[in-house]
């Protein structure tokens, strides 16, 4: 067990599609767990990252909790990977950067259709939203980028196998796409 590669994963401001795509490697998961084991991940519900060889980050940075999680991962992962469009360039959540944050909140919680008891949530337990959504490479150093919305299971598999086997990572043409 001690020799196994440790993989940690985290969802930031994303839709969980990249994690679904990771699961979409299907029975190859059995091959993966021959050589790797999961540190903290929403897949096993461990909450804090221990010490990992590979950290996979889905989603961009949209709030203070995202910043903390991302920095924690950077401290504890030897190799940190931006997985998917949102981690790579902000993706769909970053489309809110076109608007003032207050306008977004008022649209959702004050003026939106069907809103009852309108008020902008301000419970101290709710992470504060950042003014803009950022790609993760703007916050910490990132070692590898895997684009796609989501990256296909095949491209995730190509990436993980080549990285774990210590080969230079290269993809067939159809495995790299931004959409």
């Amino acid at each position: 067990m001690a020799d196994k590669i440790r993989i940690a994963t985290a969802p930031l401001a994303g839709c969980f599609g990249c994690h679904m795509s990771l699961l979409d490697i299907d029975e190859r998961l059995l091959d993966l767990i021959e050589v790797a084991e999961f540190d903290c991940s929403p897949l096993n519900d461990f909450k804090r990252v221990g010490s990992a060889d590979i950290g996979l980050i889905e989603g961009g940075v949209a709030n203070t909790e995202n910043v903390e999680t991302l920095r924690d991962f950077r401290r504890h992962c030897r190799i940190l990977v931006a997985v998917g469009a949102c981690a790579v360039n902000g993706g769909i959540p970053a489309m809110r950067n076109q608007f003032d944050l207050r306008d977004c909140l008022e649209e959702s919680y004050v003026n939106g259709i069907g809103v009852e008891n309108p008020m902008i949530p301000n419970d101290p337990e709710i992470p504060l939203l950042l003014d803009k959504v950022h790609p993760i490479h703007e916050v910490v150093k990132i070692d590898y980028f895997l684009p796609g919305c989501p990256p296909s299971a095949d491209s995730i598999w190509t990436f993980l196998t080549e990285l774990i086997e210590g080969r230079p990572v290269s993809f067939p043409y159809t495995q790299i796409h931004y959409d």
Binding site: A82, N89, Q98, H134, P135, H137, E138, Y144, L146
Partner: peptide
């Protein structure tokens, strides 16, 4: 072979 934007986004309006 571009995998990432490398630079800081402007996010212009």
């Amino acid at each position: 072979g571009m995998l990432a934007p490398h630079f800081t986004h402007f996010f212009p309006r």
